Simulated scan of single mutants.
Amino acid sequence: MVISDGAPVDDSTLSVNSGDFLEKHLKKMVKFIENKTEIEVLAIGIGHDVSRYYDKAIKITDVNELGDVMISQLSSLFETKKKFH
């Protein structure tokens, strides 16, 4: 589960690379994890739509929603897994 407040930013990295370096890297790594591993990735964007980076993404508008959304999503994940075992 990834909690995000928007696009990836790191001043040191951006000072020696192109402006879209971190965004491209994030997209590449997420796609690899989603398509080539057994790891399930879910992203929660706080005030930002992060669906351009993650296939499974939820946007919340207020940080006060975070706890409930996390518990709900984790519960759903384990309920689904339980059905397969």
Rank of each mutant, 00 (worst) to 15 (best):
Q73D: 12
V63F: 06
K27F: 03
S75P: 02
Q73F: 08
T61Y: 01
M1R: 02
G47I: 02
D5F: 04
H48Q: 13
F84H: 14
M29W: 06
K31C: 05
I46K: 02
H85C: 09
K83W: 08
S51W: 07
D49C: 10
K56Y: 11
S75C: 11
L26M: 11
I39K: 04
I60D: 00
K28P: 00
P8C: 05
G6S: 03
Q73L: 14
E38D: 15
I71K: 13
N35V: 07
R52S: 14
D11E: 12
K81I: 12
S18C: 02
I58L: 11
D62M: 00
T13N: 07
I71G: 07
E38L: 10
L26C: 08
D5W: 03
T37Y: 04
I71H: 09
L22C: 04
F84C: 04
K28T: 11
K24P: 00
T61W: 00
V9I: 13
F32H: 12
D11Q: 04
N17Y: 02
F78D: 06
K27S: 12
L42F: 09
K27M: 14
P8M: 02
L26W: 01
V9D: 06
V63A: 12
E40Q: 08
I60Q: 01
I58Y: 12
H25W: 06
S12H: 11
